[in-house]
């Protein structure tokens, strides 16, 4: 039943044995120890499982592991591997998180945005995280964190 799939995780070639009904989120967490994507709602509503596949932020709870054969996956572990990104530093400065549970998903969604639009408008920032639920912050400090000139230089 199990099948070996090959893909890149955070820049490194990797493989794992998965059953057809294994969900990507759980496979990344259980098989490869990538625990930053988390399960919040299990049906795509909350965004805390967000990872990037081939440069696009997606819900890893709505994807089967077998689907990512040959793909490039990036999780917050990969974003944090080198130096701490300007967005992450700005999140610290602006108190853009509280309990921290939504932070990995938020950062992945915003990383996709900043990759495509290095100087987003406030509306674009809101649009990018409109599917990432945060129950603690009230979002204001998250938006402030992205709009900090150190993150998005020109407006």
């Amino acid at each position: 039943m199990k099948k070996t799939i090959h893909f890149k995780l955070n820049g490194e070639k990797t493989s794992m044995d998965v059953a057809p009904n294994d969900v990507l989120l759980e496979a990344l967490r259980a098989n490869l120890g990538a625990k930053s994507p988390k399960c919040g709602c299990d049906r795509g509503d909350c965004g805390t499982c967000t990872v990037m596949i081939n440069g696009r932020a997606v819900r890893s709870c709505l994807i089967l592991a077998v689907e990512v054969e040959g793909c490039e996956i990036l999780t917050l572990e990969g974003v944090s591997k080198g130096r701490i990104a300007a967005l992450q530093r700005s999140f610290v400065k602006h108190n853009s998180f509280q309990c921290g549970f939504c932070a990995p998903g938020m950062i992945m969604s915003l990383t996709e945005l900043l990759n495509h639009k290095p100087t987003p408008t406030e509306e674009e920032v809101k649009e990018a995280i409109s599917g990432n639920l945060c129950r603690c912050t009230g979002y204001t400090q998250i938006v402030e964190g992205v709009m900090d000139p150190a993150v998005s230089k020109k407006r």
């Binding site: 930053s36 999140f91 998180f97």
Partner: peptide
């Protein structure tokens, strides 16, 4: 600055 900040923004 929050003492739990680095852990929380890196996914650690």
């Amino acid at each position: 600055e929050r003492v739990d900040s680095l852990e929380k923004i890196t996914g650690a």
